[in-house]
Amino acid sequence: MWLWFHRLGSGPTFYPFAGRLAWLLAIPGLLLLLHGLYGALWAAPVDYQQGQGYRMIFVHVPAAWLSLFIYSSMAVAAVVALIWRMKVAEVYIIDAAIPGAGFTAAALITGMLWGKPMWGTYWVWDARLTSELILLFLYLGVLALDQAIEDKRQAARACALLALVGAVNVPIVHYSVEWWNTLHQGPTVSKFDSPSMDMRMLVPLLELTLASTLLFGTIVLVRMRATLLWRERHSRWVGEIVEAGQ
């Protein structure tokens, strides 16, 4: 097990493995996405309070979930990268941060589009939206730090430390923002205030969340493959792969 873990961390083993795994995640991901979209837009009944407008949560929740999931996974990879100096984990941090920032922005935009008809304004200093915005800045900080350091291995280790410090801070930021929010506005309408959700609503929501997580896996694996090729472009295994046109 340990040996396998270590071997997977090296480029020549990881590259073909990641290629296969990317497709393995993409196919069920795409099927689930299509079925989930059908369920979300067509099969799920109209909400009696929010009308058709509630259908926005089917994309807002997966994006918000991914924004948190990706940041936590970056923190786990950061621990692996800092302790064992595993190259694959170093590469993961940056290659996950780019789609992570994208999904965080998507969660913000869909949240704002939901807020306009529900709250009457695009932006409310609501605890969730505000902490999501801060999370976006944390992602952008990691990306900026990576850009600023020439030596990419050093950059990866610096980003790992920053991601770890950020991950410790995310819950503190969240609770402090929530505290501040309840103090000044009183609790806003929770998106899930109905205690039991209709199954026809819950199933597409879970499907879309799972589908986008699987597809994120595909995206990050594709990115990591390319990054590994570029970092080890002077090694023999890269030459063989590139010449063979794989």
């Binding site: 900080g141 900026a144 950020g166 801070n169 503190i172 930021v173 923002v177």
Partner: peptide, 18 residues
């Protein structure tokens, strides 16, 4: 690195500010 330091640190300062 001054500008970058502020970009990295200001989001982490939010709880202290609040």
């Amino acid at each position: 690195g001054g500008l970058l330091t502020s970009l990295l640190m200001l989001p982490l300062y939010v709880p202290v500010l609040i």
